[in-house]
Design a protein around this nucleic acid. Structure first.
Lengths: 183, 183
DNA sequence: ACCTGAACACCGTTCAAGT
DNA sequence: ACCTGAACACCGTTCAAGT
């Protein structure tokens, strides 16, 4: 009872953060909310639409980010990386609408930095594709290396330094190459 | 009867080409082969492993490609794009091993073109992430725009020109930016 | 208006038992 | 060695019927 769109998306989001995308099912969500699975469909048209909404919400903090294009994209990675296996979801959400938060803001930042409008638009598309591919790759690798660590990272601090650092270096390298203003 | 690893992967691949990744399930595969679902697991350890093998096979034609890095990556897109919604699969296959056919060959091509070894290695990682992100985005968009066209494209020729051309332009643009040798 | 119960048409994987 | 039958533990979605 007391079900609502807002409650559903909030619960979906917390499931996503705690257990990863693979554990976000409509039935699991319904169980969490103590409700029959069908009840969700009174408030939400489909799972895909629900996840698109959640993806949007997760990325909204970027809208208040004030740095330049590079800083924006670094913040994007930081925001998304902790959400295990959410990369595929973002790929889908971006395909659904290309104005997903970082993409929405990039062109103006580039124009501010002196880019021509057309170049800024194309570069945004390129950078987004790279960033989504990079994050998805990185998350998939993390998921496949330590397969079922389940819940808490009880390993204290500084857990998976080597690959994460390598991945960060590659990410930064790609961004720098793409965000250098062409002559 | 007469089941084998080779027959299974071949059938999986033909299902993938005909109906897309969403229609490749172990049960569907078993039905196609006139066999109980469990029988597949005598030859294959898991669905994930099966799909990784299929992804590898699809990309092996690239190994005999003789062009430079840019031509190699253009061929990659051509090869993969007709297989609807296979982008996510490739992202996973690449995460499982980073020597997936185009990645395997890129470093030497770059070195041949005068790149330093270290730069070539990093650039390969960057280009792969971009290409995988780009293809996945493009396929997701195609899948979401005309949702259930099902089987044959009965629309004759020259079907979806506008977005496909835009996507190709962005892909090329990104590659050119990444494959220019830095000073 | 909002929700339940029950169904429909599926999944991946395991495993005793058969041949 | 290779496969079947049957089960386990799930899916997303729909929809009559209840309140």
């Amino acid at each position: 009872m007391a079900l609502s769109l807002e409650l559903i998306t909030r619960t979906a989001r917390s499931l996503l953060i705690q257990y990863g995308l693979q554990d976000v099912s409509m039935r699991r969500l319904a169980k969490e909310l103590d409700v029959a699975p069908g009840a969700l469909y009174y408030h939400v048209p489909s799972k895909q639409e629900l996840l698109r909404t959640v993806a949007h919400e997760i990325l909204t903090p970027l809208r208040t980010e004030s740095g330049d294009a590079l800083q924006l994209m670094l913040r994007f990675r930081e925001l998304v990386l902790p959400l295990r296996d959410v990369g595929d979801l973002l790929l889908l959400a971006y395909a659904l609408d290309a104005s997903l938060p970082p993409a929405q803001l990039l062109p103006e930042r580039l124009v501010t930095a002196g880019w021509p409008r057309d170049e800024a638009r194309d570069t945004t598309a390129v950078v987004m594709r790279f960033a989504l591919g990079a994050v998805a790759t990185e998350q998939n690798q993390a998921l496949l290396e330590r397969p079922a660590t389940a819940t808490a990272t009880a390993t204290g601090q500084a857990p998976d330094a080597p690959q994460a650092m390598e991945a960060e270096r590659i990410y930064l390298h790609g961004l720098q190459r793409l965000l250098i203003r062409p002559v």
